[in-house]
Design a protein around this nucleic acid. Structure first.
Lengths: 249, 249
DNA sequence: CGTCTCCTTGAGGTTGGTCAAACCAGGTGG
DNA sequence: CCACCTGGTTTGACCAACCTCAAGGAGACG
């Protein structure tokens, strides 16, 4: 179970202390995957600071100039794209070990808002330095490319979800994805606390919040889930799996 | 008007001749953007071959090992993601100057099929060499990162489209996007020939082919388009623009 | 204990999907 | 040259999934 939701914290605060990748318990999930200890020390030198982002605050906003990538250290984020006419689309949810800000490289300014859904902290990776460092040692370059490519592959998966799945399938896929990512981080794959509202889930899945709510209720009636507000217990993982990979009728 | 659709060509054929980036009329759109002549010559050395892909053939298929990126030289491609249960989602359409294969970097094997929608040719960029070269000169590295980031931003735009636009808005956005890309390549922004079927458009936009067809007809009735099968004339570009940026009712 | 935000549930409406028939253009073969 | 076939497209009638609108409930917090 992921928890921790303290209520008062100063707004975006810089931590002077250096947090080394080589010591980080996320090093098998995060940017340093596959780096040897020597290389990792070089990466440590790059990471100038940590940043704390309280729940509800933004790490960065669309149109702001892009300077750095951010690795989620603790907490949970969402990224939102806002269209000219004001429509908002949640493009992703990020948890520990995942990178934020890749969209900013293209144009030099961010294209989405990144907001903390619970009190969070990130490692700041100044992009200029990172790019320079990647030039000097290839393992980091390779890893950076992999991460960007993985994001592209993930996005294609979301297109599939939005383009050709029905509501129940989308919700099932969403829950399965969450459980998998939580399990990779050592959390229970069956007990989860949603950090986002029904509306945010709906935005991500291309559904209205009422439809998300109804689908949760339906899954509960069918014995697949137990839903208590944001506290979800997965009772039948196989049923979820069957839902997402059920041939299109 | 884009044309050229010869009917007989041998299957995927390698061209021995070196086609230099420095001579290419796509160099302002493609990978070499922003490289100086000296750097561009280094890139020329990398590009070992061109490949011809006849209409209907695949450049690569999902699950095949990933070795190279491909820059579209002439022609038109689609990329398709197939889910476990056999559903197919078109994830993009690529025209001259655009890169194919970025999704393969993550896992070392391709995750989508890339199929030529007309007789096409591509430049082959062996990825290992490209990565190595990028290490040696930073402008190429920067450019590669920009292109990957741009793909991520594009994907987010598609999520917005799939997640929160109605059928007419999706079709309008699709057409606008096409005209913009064609214009950037020196083609007319009002006369276009669709290289893909209604079904492929529908798959990309998360709609059924009948809905795409009906929407085209509706636009024609409203004097926004003239539709003759795949030959489209845009009569009212502003109307299309208004449709995509119309506040959610 | 009132307020606020978020969630649930119901009733009814709309958009886009489904199914089916016909059309059209291009290619093939008699 | 025409008949025919094929793949793609158009159109109509009907239907269902999801949305909209609305009311009420649960929990957190001052």
């Amino acid at each position: 179970m992921i928890c921790v939701m303290p209520t008062t914290l100063p707004p975006v605060r810089l931590e002077p202390l250096r947090t080394a990748c080589s010591d980080c318990n996320l090093r098998e999930l995060c940017l340093p995957v596959g780096l040897n200890p020597v290389d990792m020390e070089k990466l440590d030198g790059l990471m100038s600071q940590r940043k704390v982002v309280p729940r509800g605050e933004s790490l960065f906003r669309a149109t702001e100039p892009f300077h750095a990538l951010y690795a989620v250290r603790t907490g949970f984020f969402k990224t939102c794209l806002t269209s000219e006419d004001g429509r908002v689309q949640v493009t992703g949810f990020q948890m520990a070990g995942e990178l934020l800000g890749l969209d900013g490289i293209a144009s030099g300014h961010h294209s989405v808002d990144a907001e903390a859904l619970e009190d969070s902290s990130v490692c700041v990776l100044p992009y200029h330095d990172l790019e320079h460092l990647a030039r000097d040692f290839g393992a980091l370059q390779t890893q950076l490319h992999r991460i960007m490519s993985r994001e592209i592959v993930r996005d294609h998966g979301v297109m599939m979800l939005l383009g050709s799945m029905r509501a129940e399938e989308r919700v099932a896929a969403f829950l399965l994805n969450l459980t998998q990512r939580l399990r990779a981080r050592g959390y229970s794959a069956t007990e989860l606390v949603l950090r986002m509202t029904r509306e945010e889930i709906g935005s991500y899945l291309g559904l209205k919040l009422e439809t998300v709510s109804r689908t949760f209720s339906k899954f509960q009636d069918e014995g697949i889930l137990e839903v208590k507000q944001r506290q979800i217990t997965v009772l039948d993982l196989d049923a979820l799996q069957r839902l997402v990979s059920s041939a299109a009728c």
